[in-house]
Amino acid sequence: MDDRDTGFTEYFAARSSTLRSTAFLLCGDWHRAEDLVQTTFIKLYRVWNRVAERGKLDGYVRKILVRTFLDEARRGFFRRETVTEDPGDTSLPSSTGAVEDRVVLLRALTRVPARQRAALVLRYWEDLSLEESARVLRCSTGTVKSQASRGLALLRDELPASVTL
């Protein structure tokens, strides 16, 4: 294994779990999350030798992950998107405990439109600033603010009153 592969493998071992968690919150499914992470690292490998500043790798990889998710989340044929398996119009079940509440939250999160969901995950899971989130989402900080605000409002609407977070 050459230096490039060694460095890449070490970086993967160090970061893949965290990235997988981010992907899990974005797509709500571990298997899809792993696919997203794998696609992200395949894209990263292509440019590995060109990423001069290793200190900026984390942000770069996060950007690839979120943009890959957004690309795949687009719907319809002209947008080359995927069928929504989740019915969408059925109500979420009320919950009986903390673990169930988390499951309900995750399901509610998957009903938030993809860009709003990405804004929520970047701001409140990755703890990115508005400016950093805007760079990842390729939009203005005002748009990040409004996307996160609308996403949060929708999440509130989707969650049953019985859920305590």
Binding site: S17, F24, E34, F41, V99, L105, L106, D127, L165
Partner: peptide
Amino acid sequence: LRGALRGTVETATPPPAMHAGAV
């Protein structure tokens, strides 16, 4: 929400770690 997202990831059961060699 910040706390809930952390709780969601902590209480979820992830599959085994991804294999670096395969990727």
